[in-house]
Write a protein that binds this DNA or RNA. Structure first.
Lengths: 353, 353
DNA sequence: TTGTATGCGTTATCAT
DNA sequence: ATGATAACGCATACAA
């Protein structure tokens, strides 16, 4: 590890003071330098391969340009895509992403929170409801924290909402319009972590009720969530619950609680005599990239994740920048955001008969 | 952003000096303290919610416990799984992952390299051949850099090899044993970035040649790589090239250059009258998690990615730790590692006739 | 316009 | 066994 050049080295080489180097390299507009000085400094920096030491800078400024991204797992197309969008937008703004995979384990979550504090992360994006909301509050300033997902329990954190309830309604209404009266809802466990699963189901129930079809809904819920780190678990759940469902009930449509579960359902159905969508319709949620790839293309609900990822990052950056200039302290008025949108594809059609 | 407590605050509260706090909280074994002092300090730290400031610590120690992970994209099951394994093992060792998505763009790669230097990253893991090897060499010390993948051009970087050539051989030999004589090789572009694609093909060619079946190989190569950031591109390539291939040639087996391409191939075949594997066999490379999920389960080659991810992280950590104690400077003797292994599944069978 | 001096919070050296 | 004190490299208030 050869020693790295410091701003003092650059200063010496350029024949100016270290202050001048700092000022010029930070492009400070409130100061003006002769073009020759600027050139000398930049050239010296380039020749020495100088890069400012973020430890030293951070010690002064207390900014890290680091955003912690907490995920239950990255082996899941939904989180993947989310991570990708967040990373891309953050990078475009000069912020970087520290990958924090919690596996939904409280102790991992806790150690990551401490880590983020000690690294003076400028912000934290949760992609699930915190397991330890009180701990988080102690450690992370409220305006540096955003939850990406459901907002139900209202813990007082800022939230980028996906409105899963409405998404559930939309899907159910669509199927009802197509004439479906007996619908199966297949889901990984509703208890515990994922609030969005429950919300989606609630939305479906509401729509069924509104159409007087309550009794036509069959819910099949998966059991334990032990293997949740690998999304193959969700496919398996979709597969086996659908098998069970079709053995016991005659439905004309199946809603998977997300696209992965829906794939599992589809995967079972394709092994039977049933045709999709002639005999049975299938749909999911999330519009993960696989849903426009795997055949038959699956009907699903899009959340405008890219836009929302952008908003999440923007909220944090706004707080960071408000630090210097406390004037524009406008918080989270992100209400005019796109709601969920149905993506109709091959896997759904009119009810048979 | 309320002010964070410093070790001095802890010292004041515990009634000791700041030095003592540092010594105790760092669990230094070369120093011994009365149990009462230790308790006082720890308690004060806990009560104040004290977390050491990494900027200050880093300034002194020049260690960040940060590893930069350079990926072309994370929207690809292969890189996903790799990232997951690397993150998990690194976290277990107290190291963290900075996500560096380059989209295979040279300027992004360059800015990430500078960033990693300025953040004093302890190491860098490339998951592809560097676009800017010279720049990397200038900025990242050789012993803090590991390439995960092919080693062909031998740029002088340490490498965790996947031995794609051998993987190609293994697959081809297996198909030949099953009696296949006319085999299609379907691939995304061979030029440019991905060395492993070419190596896989070379391995296949070698095996065919060895069996005197050279003329039985048909290679279909996809054109431009513009949409490579979304792995749907690879599925599309598999789909359309297979369509083309089957129109022009009669083969009894198709090798996809990776599992995604193989899925694309499969996806087309399932829309024809051909049965898999009775009429035609399909296989891929990488053993991504989808390959044991999607039906029919696809035959593929496993690389022991989890083990190798571990090795990559270990190599870096070893270098970091060798810094203090330059005695154990044993470098990359990771030769006794598992080679590629064939995973036989439903999508392959004996050649027809 | 440029340079000098100081301090950020830690770790580490050296006294005590 | 514990406490003063000096760096680490940068940004910045202030001096020139």
């Amino acid at each position: 590890m050869k020693k790295k050049p410091t701003s003092r080295d650059v200063a010496k080489k350029a024949g100016v003071s270290q202050t001048t180097v700092s000022l010029i390299l930070n492009n400070r507009t409130d100061m003006t330098f002769p073009e020759t000085t600027r050139r000398k400094v930049r050239e010296a920096a380039r020749e020495l391969n100088y890069v400012p030491n973020q430890f030293a800078r951070g010690l002064k400024t207390n900014q890290s340009r680091l955003i912690g991204l907490l995920l239950p797992t990255i082996s899941n197309p939904y989180y993947q895509t989310l991570a990708q969008h967040i990373e891309e937008f953050a990078a475009s703004k000069g912020y970087n992403i520290l990958l924090c995979n919690t596996s939904r384990l409280a102790d991992r979550e806790e150690s990551y929170i401490s880590l983020l504090k000690s690294k003076s992360a400028d912000g934290v994006i949760y992609t699930f409801a915190p397991l330890l909301p009180d701990k988080v509050r102690q450690v992370i300033p409220a305006d540096r924290m955003v939850i990406f997902g459901e907002n139900e329990q209202n813990l007082g954190f800022r939230t980028i909402s996906l409105d899963s309830y409405k998404a559930g309604e939309i899907v159910a209404k669509y199927l009802i319009e197509l004439g479906h009266k007996r619908i199966g809802f297949v889901t990984s466990p509703l208890s515990g972590f994922s609030l969005s699963r429950k919300s989606r189901l609630d939305g479906v129930i509401a729509a069924m009720k509104a159409a007087g079809l309550e009794s036509g809904l069959v819910v099949k819920e998966g059991k334990d969530e032990k293997e949740i780190n690998d999304s193959s678990f969700e496919i398996d759940i979709g597969f086996s619950l659908t098998e069970e469902l079709l053995r016991e009930h005659s439905v004309t449509a199946i809603i998977g609680v997300n696209d992965m579960v829906a794939f599992g359902a589809l995967s079972h159905i394709l092994r039977t005599d049933l045709r999709v969508p002639e005999d049975i319709s299938v749909c999911g949620f999330d519009n993960i990239y696989l849903s426009r790839i795997l055949k038959p293309h699956i009907t699903t609900v899009d959340h405008y994740i890219a836009d929302k990822a952008r908003s999440a990052v923007e909220m944090i950056i706004a707080s960071v920048e408000a630090e210097d200039d406390p004037s524009d302290r406008q918080m989270d008025t992100h209400d005019n955001m796109n709601g969920p949108m149905l993506i109709k594809r091959e896997s759904t059609g009119p009810a048979p008969n």
